[in-house]
Simulated scan of single mutants.
Amino acid sequence: MSEKMDKNLLPMPCFVDCRYQHHSKEELIARITELMQAGNYYRLDLSSPWFGKVLAAYQQPHRYFHTLEHLLSICERIHETAPSDPEMQGKLLLTALFHDVVWYPQGDDSEDASVEAFDYIIGQYQLPIPEQVQADIRRAILSTKDQDASDELASRFHEYDCHIILHGSPVDLLGYEFQIFREFQYLNMVEYRRGRSKFFSRFSRRFPDCRVNMQFLIEYLERRRTRVGVYAGTFNPFHIGHLSILEKAELMFDKVIVAVGINPKKQVERDDRLVHVLPFHEVVHFDTLMVDFIEQESVFADVTLVRGLRNGYDLDYEMNQLCFMRAMRPETQAVYIPCDKELEHISSSALNSLTMFDVRGRDSIYYPKKYNYYQQSIEELFG
């Protein structure tokens, strides 16, 4: 990459088409299976349930970069450029398959959890992988935490895993950075920028040849104005109607902050349960005026208020509220998203009314389960 990069690239729209964007999930799985079978040095049974469960992990909805597309891109490059040694190719493919099988952006133990899943699957399904090869793959997976290669397998795998960062064009780098941003959207902008700057600096020291790429991303991060939606409400409780609005808003913005207001009329106290329902989103509690909260978030981003509508009465109410907000902050922007017809009847107050009766769990259909897997153990995920 030339050091004389076009600075006009820096504020460009953040979503970039990826190599496999137009492939269906079924096509991705079929191609990964084909490549794994072609390099199946240890004759593993890829029709066994373990293989499907591993691929299912790469489809978890909080993933934007660590996905089937990323896995396939690594497998493709291994087949295109790996040495003629079939055993090394087999080990590289298995390292690719398991290196991100557990990926949660919170904390720094995903690599350890991936190794735990690797060991569990080997034992549970009796995979015929020699112990020394298992040890090599474990080391390679763990080395991805700091890109610290201790042997040939780890060194080769880092080249495949970090291909975009090491060799990507500006367009590739912007697409990569946006996908990583979406995975870490539970962080506020200050925390995210601080963490990414540390990563870029560490990566530059580890791979001096990619310093130009890292500097490009640092400058982009400093200049970029993120498009943020603030989905505000009391969410007491948060239900599938709320989730539907949130998912629609995520198609419109780079990220959506879920802002939980303290409404004296509804006598809502701070409740951290929503953080567990939406573990991969930024959930913020506020007790100020909405316009003041939006102003606070506008330091690093272009912020738009997001509200859901069930009917015309909701629209009338929201229009009145917007008039008040614009009187205090004229630049306030808002979008109103109609809920799906089949969800119009759901409200937090109605669900709260149900708690007065013995409904025997029949109200569970109204509560989101999208991210329940985050609380599951390795045995529950892969057993």
Rank of each mutant, 00 (worst) to 15 (best):
E26Y: 11
F286R: 13
R270Q: 13
G308N: 04
K25E: 15
T67E: 03
Y125D: 00
K369P: 15
D136N: 13
R223L: 13
E295M: 04
R194C: 10
N188G: 04
V212N: 02
D340K: 08
H285T: 15
I337L: 14
P11C: 02
R227M: 09
D316R: 11
P128W: 00
H163G: 04
L72A: 04
F382M: 08
K198D: 05
D6G: 09
L68Y: 09
S73L: 04
R227P: 07
V299M: 04
V359M: 07
G90K: 11
Y367C: 03
F157K: 15
L173M: 10
Y176I: 04
D151Q: 13
M356C: 03
M252T: 02
F216S: 00
Y120N: 05
V291M: 00
L127E: 01
Q375T: 06
E250A: 01
Q179I: 01
Y41V: 12
L55F: 05
P61Y: 08
A135P: 01
I257Q: 00
A117L: 11
C162D: 08
H79K: 09
E297F: 03
Q321S: 14
F235Q: 15
Y64I: 01
E152W: 05
G168P: 14
I218K: 06
Y336E: 11
M189Q: 15
A149E: 15
E69P: 00
H79W: 07
E76K: 08
L35M: 10
F203C: 03
T304I: 00
N320E: 14
L322R: 10
N8S: 15
E344Y: 07
I262C: 04
E131S: 08
G241C: 11
R362L: 11
I121D: 01
V228P: 02
S48K: 02
Y220W: 11
P330Y: 03
H163W: 13
L381R: 15
I180Y: 09
I240L: 12
L10F: 14
E76I: 10
M356L: 05
L9N: 12
I74H: 06
L35T: 07
I294E: 00
A334W: 07
I29D: 05
M252G: 00
E318I: 10
Y373T: 07
F15K: 06
S2Q: 08
L354W: 02
E269T: 13
F178H: 15
P86N: 11
Y41S: 04
K91C: 12
R139D: 08
I337T: 02
S47Q: 12
R225N: 07
D340E: 13
E116N: 12
T81P: 01
K4C: 02
S201N: 01
M88F: 11
V283W: 14
E318P: 13
K4V: 02
Y104P: 11
E380H: 07
E250M: 07
A113R: 14
R202F: 02
V102Y: 10
L309E: 01
L217E: 01
E3D: 12
F280L: 06
F280P: 05
A350Y: 03
